[in-house]
């Protein structure tokens, strides 16, 4: 009897701390909503569809920021995904055993570099480089909306490039895990049917498809939320444009830049409402990604096929 009351105390005690973690997440959503009420009630849905951002007259519309965030993240994804997958495939399928750990470590190192260092490098090294690229763009191309704009260096292109580099290690390491978890019997089946190495790899990728999509989405979530590196190279000018060259603005960047400048409550609430949307989007993307990865892992650990004890590589 004493034993079980000890147990209960322990369980409740530690559970309380666990509940705190839960409360924090819920609290964030709650607090963000509460602190943006003024803006929510004043602008309603219009907030998401209008482009005026005028602190002076108190008129706020967040469309350019949403655009900038999504555009930069999608571009980053387009650039980063093939490379991240290529790395994952190389490390888990192609590279000699000895190289695996060091290569994995090097790619993980990319993830360890702080955002501010990326930003610093972005401002002083990448932006001049991008400016040279922009200047060198042939006039024929400059007619297209994609390439219209002053060759400042800062702009969507620089932001997309830097985001891509930052996203690569995240997608890559998860994809690597997924591929490691694909049972070797799948590749064996392909080889036994006369597949080339790449064809056997394709079979493995096909098996891990949902997990790999999850890995890509994880990178997407990361790109959506990145603040400092982006704001240092994107130009911070709110406009909705398809141009890669024109400076634009993201949700995270505008919050970082204007939060402490916000003179009145409405301004602040508008900024926090942007934060709320960012929260909702990134949490949503993350949840979908984790679901995909989890469902994939489950298929491997408890396959429907005849069970064989496979080493669990969690």
């Amino acid at each position: 009897m004493r034993r079980s009351s000890d147990d209960r105390k322990f369980r409740l005690g530690t559970g309380a701390f666990a509940a705190v973690v839960l409360l924090i997440v819920v609290g964030i959503g709650f607090e963000l909503t509460r602190q943006s009420m003024l803006s929510i009630t004043k602008f309603g849905l219009k907030f998401w569809t209008t482009s005026t951002w005028d602190p002076v007259s108190g008129d706020f519309g967040a469309l350019p920021f949403i655009w900038g965030t999504l555009y930069s993240a999608i571009l980053a994804l387009l650039l980063a995904t093939p490379i991240a997958l290529g790395i994952a495939i190389f490390i888990s399928e192609l590279s000699p055993r000895m190289l695996r750990q060091p290569l994995a470590y090097l790619t993980d190192l990319l993830a360890a570099i702080p955002s501010i260092v990326y930003g610093l490098w972005g401002v002083f090294v990448m932006v001049p480089f991008v400016r040279k690229l922009e200047v060198a763009t042939p006039d024929a191309l400059k007619q297209f909306p994609l390439f219209k704009g002053p060759p400042l260096g800062v702009g969507m292109l620089a932001a997309a490039l830097i985001l891509a580099v930052m996203v690569i290690p995240f997608s890559s390491s998860v994809a690597r895990e997924i591929l490691k978890n694909v049972p070797s019997t799948q590749r064996e089946a392909a080889y036994a049917l006369g597949a080339t190495r790449w064809e056997a790899i394709k079979v493995a990728i096909g098996f891990g498809k949902s997990g790999i999509i999850g890995a890509v989405m994880l990178g997407f979530g990361r790109a959506l939320g990145e603040t400092i590196a982006v704001t240092m190279v994107i130009g911070n000018s709110p406009q909705v444009t398809a141009s890669l060259f024109k400076p634009q603005y993201t949700m995270a960047a505008v919050i970082a830049n204007e939060f402490t400048e916000a003179a009145d409550e409405l301004y602040l609430h508008a900024l926090i409402e942007i934060g709320l949307l960012l929260f909702i989007i990134t949490v949503g993307v993350n949840m979908i990604s984790r679901l995909l990865i989890w469902s994939m892992k489950r298929r491997v650990v408890a396959p429907i096929v005849v069970p064989v004890i496979e080493e669990a590589t969690a």
């Binding site: 049972p183 019997t185 799948q186 064996e188 089946a189 080889y191 036994a192 049917l193 006369g194 597949a195 080339t196 079979v203 096909g206 098996f207 298929r299 096929v305 005849v306 064989v308």
Partner: peptide, 20 residues
Amino acid sequence: VVELRRKVGMVFQKSNPFPK
């Protein structure tokens, strides 16, 4: 090798159909 494996088929202890 690829040609060889077409000519010599193999069935494994644990059946391993593709998820297709």
